[in-house]
Amino acid sequence: MKSRPLAVPGVFLFSPQAFADPRGVFLSPYQEAAFVEALGHKLFPVAQTSQSTSRRGSVRGIHYTLAPPGTARYVCCTRGRVLDFAIDLRVGSPTFGLWDQTELDGQSCRSVYFPPGVGHAFVALEDDTVVTYLMSERYVRENELAVSVVDPAIGLPLPALADPVRSDRDRAAPTLAWARDLGLLPDYTACQAVEQRWRQN
């Protein structure tokens, strides 16, 4: 498995090797040795796994968890194709507001690690696109928030879509500046403290 950091500090892309034979393809989207080599610690204790299925043109995000408690995610597209975004929402981070993008698909099963406080968004580029998530915390509704994916101050290069599909929550999400003024964004120091606890275990 190969890995490389993305522009947002702490975010890594993992690309597994695929083994093909007449039956099909076998690969391993998560490999502990590669993860430890990239980040210097093991993956967080997994509290929940989740999965979304999206039609072409669906836009999800920008989603994040308050910190504390802080939630990390290991995200993989297992079917279809997405344009995936990582956005630094950590107040106090030297790269606050910085984003990066990558394409994930069900053939390569590349995965992205999102540390606590980094927002996640994606656009489904094919019908029946499946995205899976390993999460360090269980879903608690009041801790899960969103920032507008179309906030011009963030400037995500969303593809032109004839019929973009977003949830009511995502359409009503505040801008990054508004969320910051309201005290709704995760704290950088708190996010670092969460990761530090994993390193000690």
Rank of each mutant, 00 (worst) to 15 (best):
T95V: 08
Q31I: 12
D100M: 03
Q101S: 15
S50T: 14
G80V: 00
E37G: 11
R56Y: 00
R81H: 14
R56I: 08
Q51G: 02
H63D: 03
S108V: 03
I87G: 00
A38L: 04
C109T: 13
I87A: 04
A38E: 09
A72I: 10
G80Y: 03
F96R: 01
E32H: 12
L39V: 14
Q101L: 11
Q48M: 12
R110T: 12
G61T: 07
G80R: 00
V82C: 08
K42H: 13
S28A: 12
P69D: 12
R73G: 09
V59A: 01
A38F: 11
R81Q: 14
V46D: 05
P69M: 09
Y113K: 07
C76E: 01
C109F: 00
G40D: 03
V25Y: 01
A33F: 00
G61S: 07
D88G: 07
A72F: 07
L98K: 11
Q31L: 13
V46P: 02
Y30V: 12
A47H: 08
G70E: 03
F35V: 07
L66T: 15
H41N: 04
F114H: 14
G70Q: 12
G106Y: 08
F114M: 02
E103K: 09
T71G: 04
V118K: 10
A47D: 05
A67N: 10
S111W: 02
P115A: 09
F26D: 00
V112T: 02
P45I: 08
G57R: 01
S54D: 12
S52A: 14
T71R: 13
G92A: 08
Q107N: 05
S28Q: 15
